[in-house]
Write a protein that binds this DNA or RNA. Structure first.
Lengths: 336, 336
DNA sequence: ATATTAAATTGACACGCGTAAAATACTTAA
DNA sequence: TTAAGTATTTTACGCGTGTCAATTTAATAT
C-alpha cells in the first residue's frame, strides 16, 4: 500500500480510507485512485486489513447441510442480502456433524466476523456450552432451529402452524392423516412437528398414528422411499392419508407409491393422499405435485439478515432476545 | 499467545508450532498444552496466523450457483476432502453472475489460499483476462466447466459421452430423440452437449431436431416445465423421444407431462420417452424415475481435490496442464 | 557415562495495514 | 478576501503471530 500510495501520489492513510469506504474521500482523489488501480493492480491484504480492525466486514453463515435444498436456498438468499449491503459472507456447512459445527465455531470465532447467521444442528444439552460461549463473544442470530436463550434473536417458522393447517385441511376434506417421520430425525424441527400433530389430533378427538421409519443421515428422499415401500408392503396404515414430517421424505414417499402402483391424489380414483411440510424447491415438480405447507423463504431470510444488520449497528448488543416465528402457508396441489 | 505460553509454562514459538501441527512437538508437551487449553480457552487469531505465513491452510471452493443440487453436492464432497486432510475450505457461490464471480476472485486473491477449486461460469472471452490473471497468482484447479488453457488442470465430465450413450440407447430401442435445451443456457456444458447431439445424429444419418426454449436464470425446472407445456400444446416434436440437456430441465419436463396427462415411459402404452443428463440427486425420485447419464460425482470431486493437493505439495507449479474427462454412466430407469 | 541428535527456548524482526494526533492544505460560504 | 470548516498528509504505533538464528535442554544411542 505504501508503494501504491507513492505511485499514485496520495498518502497511505487516504488510500486506506478509500478501501474502507470509497465515498469517504473527495471525488477528485477517488477517480485518481481508481485510475492508479487500473495501472498498478494493487489489492489490499485480507489479513492485514482485518488484523487491526475493531469491526470486520465479514459475516458468517452456518447451515447444517449445504446439499439440503432448503438450506441451500436459504443460504443463497442470506448471501445476497449480505453482499447487497457490502458485507462479505462466509458460508459454512456443518455436514450434519456436531464435531464439524464445533470446528466451524472455532474458525468463526477466530475470524471475528461482524456477525453470524446460524442454523444450528439439534444438539444434546451437553454440547450447548460450546455454542453458548460462542454467542457471548460473537453477535449471532439463530434461524430455522431455535436453542432456548442463545443468540440475540431467533427467526424461524412456526412448526405448529405447518402441522395444524395441513391436518385440519386433510381432516376436513377426507380422513385425518397418519404422521410419517424418521425415528431419529436429523432436524430438531421434526420433534416439534410430531408434538404438534399429537396435540392437534387430540384436540380433534381423533386417534393419532405416528409412523416412524428407520434410516439415518441426510438422504431423506431415499429414507422416505424405503420407509414408504416397507409401509405399503406391510399395509401398516390406519388411514388413506399421510402427512410427512418434511417434503424430502414426502418426495421419497411419492416415489415409492409410483413404484408400487399406488395412485396418489385427492380425486376419487386415488388410493392415497400424501402431504408434506416445507415446500421444498422440488415439491411442485413431483407427480402428482405435492400439497404442502410452505416456509416463507424470503421473509425468513430477509428478516434474519435485517435482524443481524441491526444487531451489528447497535454494537452487537440487543436489549432483549426476541423470537420471531412465521406461519406456514398451505399450498394446495394435487397430491392431497 | 504470549500470555498463554507463560501460563502453560511453554515458550511461545513452541505453542505456535503446536497449532501449526500438533504432532510436531513432543508428546509430553503436547498433552501439557492441551491441558492448558482446557483451562485458559485461548484460540489463535486467524488474521495474525495467516498474515505472516508463506502458505495458508485455506482452500477456496467456487461454484456458479450453490442452490443447484449438482453443485451443492460437489461442493459438499470437496469440502469433506479438504477437511479430511486438514485444510479449511471456504465456499463461495457466484450467484450466476459474472460480477459476483469477479468479486470472489478478488476476495480469494486477497485470502491467499493454498489453492482454489473452481467451477467457472461460462464467460465471454472478454472476461477471460480476470480469471487468467487469477490463475497465474493462485494455484487453481478447474472443474465442471473448462476454460481453455487456464488453471493447472481441468477435471470434468465428458459431455460427448453423456449424449452419445443416451442417443444411441434411445435410437436402438425406439426412435432417436429430439434435443431439448434452453436457448441461452446458463451452463457452458450445454453447448458441448448440443454439438455432441448434432454430431452423433449426423453420424447415425438421422435428422436432428433441437428444441430451444425461452427463459433465463437458474430455475431450470420451472423453465423446463414452461418450455415443455408450450411444446406439448403446440405439438412441436418430430419424434416421441426427448433428450433434455440436463436433468433439471427434464424434471420440469416430466412435471409438464404429468400436468398435461401425457404418459411418459418406455412401455407400449406410453406416449413419450424422456431422458436427461447429469443424474441429479432428485432424478431417481421422479415419476417415472428418470433415465439419464450420470456424472461420477465422487470420482470427479475426489480427483479434483487430489489434483489440488498434489499441486499444492509441488509448490503450486505443475509441469503441464492436464485435462481429465470422466465418462458418463447410462442409468436406465423407467422414463426412457 | 558420554557422545550424538533432536527438540525447546530466547530474543528479535517482519508482515501489511488500521488508526490516532497533529499539522497542513483545500473547499466553501459569507 | 477571509474565516471557518473539512479533507488530506505526516508521523508513528500497534495488532498477534510466523519465522529465523543462536543457544540451551532433553532424549536417544553408544
Amino acid at each position: 500500500m505504501e508503494d501504491f500510495a507513492q505511485a499514485s501520489g496520495i498518502s497511505r492513510p487516504t488510500i486506506s480510507k478509500f478501501f474502507n469506504d470509497p465515498s469517504s474521500v473527495r471525488e477528485s482523489l477517488k477517480s485518481k485512485i481508481e485510475a492508479a488501480l487500473e495501472k498498478y493492480d494493487y489489492y489490499p491484504n485480507f489479513y492485514a486489513i482485518n488484523q487491526n480492525r475493531q469491526l470486520t466486514k465479514n459475516i458468517g453463515i452456518v447451515v447444517p447441510y449445504v446439499s439440503d435444498p432448503f438450506f441451500a436456498e436459504i443460504a443463497r438468499n442470506l448471501e445476497r442480502r449480505c453482499i447487497d449491503v457490502g458485507y462479505t459472507p462466509f458460508l459454512f456447512s456443518s455436514h450434519g456433524e456436531q464435531a464439524q459445527e464445533n470446528a466451524i465455531l472455532d474458525t468463526l470465532r477466530s475470524l471475528k466476523p461482524a456477525g453470524v447467521l446460524m442454523a444450528p444442528l439439534g444438539r444434546r444439552s451437553s454440547d450447548k456450552n460450546k455454542i453458548e460461549k460462542f454467542c457471548k463473544n460473537v453477535p449471532t442470530i439463530l434461524f430455522d432451529s431455535n436453542i432456548e436463550g442463545l443468540g440475540a434473536a431467533f427467526i424461524g417458522s412456526d412448526n405448529y402452524s405447518f402441522v395444524s393447517q395441513t391436518v385440519e385441511y386433510l381432516n376436513s376434506t377426507g380422513s385425518a392423516p397418519s404422521f410419517f417421520e424418521m425415528r431419529y430425525p436429523a432436524n430438531p424441527n421434526a420433534n416439534k412437528r410430531r408434538e404438534a400433530y399429537l396435540k392437534i389430533m387430540e384436540s380433534l378427538k381423533l386417534k393419532p398414528q405416528v409412523i416412524k421409519i428407520e434410516g439415518t443421515g441426510w438422504e431423506f428422499e431415499e429414507i422416505g422411499r424405503q420407509g414408504a415401500l416397507k409401509l405399503l408392503r406391510e399395509n401398516g396404515m390406519d388411514t388413506n392419508t399421510i402427512l410427512c414430517s418434511n417434503d424430502r421424505l414426502a418426495i421419497g414417499f411419492l416415489s415409492a407409491c409410483s413404484e408400487m402402483g399406488v395412485k396418489v391424489g385427492k380425486t376419487k380414483n386415488c388410493d392415497l393422499r400424501v402431504a408434506g411440510c416445507d415446500d421444498s424447491p422440488y415439491s411442485r415438480f413431483t407427480s402428482p405435485p405435492l400439497t404442502t405447507a410452505a416456509h416463507d423463504y424470503h421473509t425468513v431470510s430477509d428478516n434474519a439478515a435485517l435482524a443481524l444488520f441491526e444487531l451489528i449497528n447497535n454494537g452487537g448488543k440487543s436489549k432483549k432476545r426476541t423470537e420471531t416465528l412465521y406461519s406456514a402457508k398451505l399450498v394446495l396441489r394435487d397430491s392431497a
